[in-house]
């Protein structure tokens, strides 16, 4: 394990995690909203926001799938040291990290009829996030919102699975946005 793996975690975990979670919760509750998160610096190519989402939500109870572009020794060591999360294939993942091209179409769990919450949350690493592009409607949105989604069709198909489906957290630099399964994309 490189010494790099030991650095870049939350300096004050209870406080940093509390702040980061509030932002993540706000974007999940209000699809289209973009927030910045701070407090952690993961090794490249993991984005700062992607790393902070993992620090905030992952631990030994949450298997994580790393898509090839994020599956480096430095990233693995860093996640292991700071969260203790085990690594797994897509089928067992609580969380998955990668670009949309890598994650789209993989066999992630979408929940069961009795436990729709048992589905993967995808952390989709993006080059940029902005409030333009696809139009969003649904819970958390007053009328409509817009968000720079990597595509539309896959998210439309995902929403049709409701109450099953995947939930997405988009990350770029220090920014986060989210798209739960309830959002209708057009």
């Amino acid at each position: 394990m490189q010494t790099d793996a030991l650095t870049g975690g939350f300096a004050d975990a209870p406080i940093d995690a509390a702040h980061a979670f509030r932002r993540i919760m706000q974007v999940m509750a209000q699809p289209g909203r973009i927030e910045t998160v701070t407090g952690g610096t993961p090794p490249a190519p993991l984005s700062q926001a992607g790393g902070i989402v993992l620090l905030t939500l992952c631990d030994p109870e949450t298997p994580v799938f790393l898509a090839p572009s994020r599956d480096t020794k430095a990233v693995r060591d860093w996640i292991t040291f700071h969260t203790g999360a085990p690594f797994c294939g897509p089928e067992e993942a609580s969380f998955a990290v990668g670009t949309w091209e890598e994650l789209n179409g993989l066999p992630f769990p979408i929940g069961t009829a009795e436990y729709p919450d048992r589905s993967t949350t995808l952390i989709v690493e993006c080059d940029r996030l902005s409030q333009d592009g696809a139009t969003l409607r649904g819970p958390g949105i007053k009328d409509t919102a817009t968000l720079s989604l990597p595509e539309r069709a896959a998210f439309q198909a995902n929403a049709k699975l409701f109450p099953l489906g995947l939930d997405h957290i988009f990350t770029a630099g220090d920014q986060v946005a989210a798209l739960p399964r309830t959002t209708k994309v057009s």
Binding site: M28, T62, P116, D117, D167, P180
Partner: peptide, 9 residues
């Protein structure tokens, strides 16, 4: 994690 899934469903 439960809160996020709750908001999503």
């Amino acid at each position: 994690r439960a809160i996020l899934k709750g908001l999503a469903i």
